[in-house]
């Protein structure tokens, strides 16, 4: 065993990269759930974003356009969910699961021509000045733009939800759609917009996988990241800052277990491999054991269908 081979700074830096896809997707899903909608289709939207992002980046040669295309693709496919649940009042759980299955199949179809194709590289953008800071600069400020963007988005979502009128209305719709409707707010319209925002962020998260972390297209490459993102929203008890904590914890353990293996730690590999999932489950159990607190924080109208007549 040679733990000295593990550089904690490098580990922290790669943890941020590993956590970015789930961080993006979880932030989007938080907004969706805050508006009172439970969209279980995160995995499907992520994988759609992954192939849309790669395809656009390869065709245009621009990773930036690729990420834009991924956000658009995620938002468009989330519209299916929005129409079914908000207009036709379909069950949200069933529709979300269907969206995941549809996304996996649809992305495989879109990806037929892109197997084994290398996307144009996404450059790292060390922030001038800040990246010179010893230790912190190397860990936090020497990434690609999407890593920064994911953190900025969390801050934005937090600020909008907490301090703006738009955030207040979104929360009102999620807590009590009947009352929000009585006050004259367009419940369905607000929810559709929230769902599209969630789809766009999930798409970005997927594109981060196919354009930066892997980087190439393969069927089913999200490999359950969308479900982890869903778990992290509950883990964070619908608070934006805790999303960072949850995502980085999961990403950190994923990277750490590989590093521990490479360093030859005398722990059976099977335990190391399952540790990220095990710890996620453990934290969820602990969270929900403080039942009253977790339940209090969940948006009251989460998962309920709304119709103006009711």
């Amino acid at each position: 065993m040679d733990l000295s081979a593990i550089d904690p700074l490098v580990l922290l830096a790669s943890l941020m990269v590993a956590a970015t896809p789930i961080l993006l997707a979880a932030t989007g899903e938080l907004v969706v759930e805050k508006s009172g909608v439970l969209n279980l289709g995160v995995e499907g939207m992520m994988i759609t974003g992954a192939i849309c992002g790669l395809a656009v980046a390869v065709e245009t040669g621009s990773p930036a356009l690729g990420f834009l295309g991924a956000a658009l693709g995620g938002a468009v496919i989330s519209l299916i969910f929005a129409v079914l649940t908000q207009v036709f009042l379909a069950n949200q759980v069933a529709t979300g699961l269907a969206l995941t299955l549809f996304g996996l199949g649809f992305s495989a179809l879109l990806g037929q021509g892109y197997i084994g194709v290398k996307p144009p590289p996404t450059g790292q953008v060390p922030i001038p000045g800040l990246s010179e800071i010893p230790v912190l600069g190397r860990v936090v400020f020497s990434h690609d733009l999407i890593v920064y963007l994911s953190l900025i988005l969390v801050a934005l979502v937090w600020a909008v939800l907490k301090y703006t009128r738009a955030g207040l209305i979104l929360r009102a719709v999620g807590e009590n759609h009947g009352a929000a409707h009585a006050l004259g707010y367009k419940v369905v319209r607000i929810r559709v917009l929230a769902i599209m925002f969630g789809g766009a962020l999930a798409g970005l998260g997927g594109a981060y996988l196919s354009l930066v972390r892997v980087p190439q297209w393969t069927e089913g490459m999200t490999a359950g990241a969308g479900w982890i993102a869903l778990a992290i929203v509950v883990f964070a008890s619908w608070k934006p800052w805790r999303i960072i904590l949850g995502a980085y914890l999961f990403g950190g353990i994923t990277v750490l277990q590989l590093n521990l293996q490479a360093a030859g730690v005398k722990v059976p590999v099977e335990y190391l491999s399952m540790s990220p999932y095990l710890i996620t489950i453990l934290v969820l159990v602990i969270m929900s054991s403080g039942r009253s607190r977790a339940a209090l924080n969940a948006p009251a109208a989460l998962g309920q269908t709304f119709h103006a007549s009711s």
Partner: peptide, 16 residues
């Protein structure tokens, strides 16, 4: 075959 996992494993080895 799991490109994300294979990439992470390669990165962990390279970092060490």
């Amino acid at each position: 075959f799991d490109p994300a996992k294979e990439a992470d494993a390669a990165k962990a080895l390279i970092e060490q």
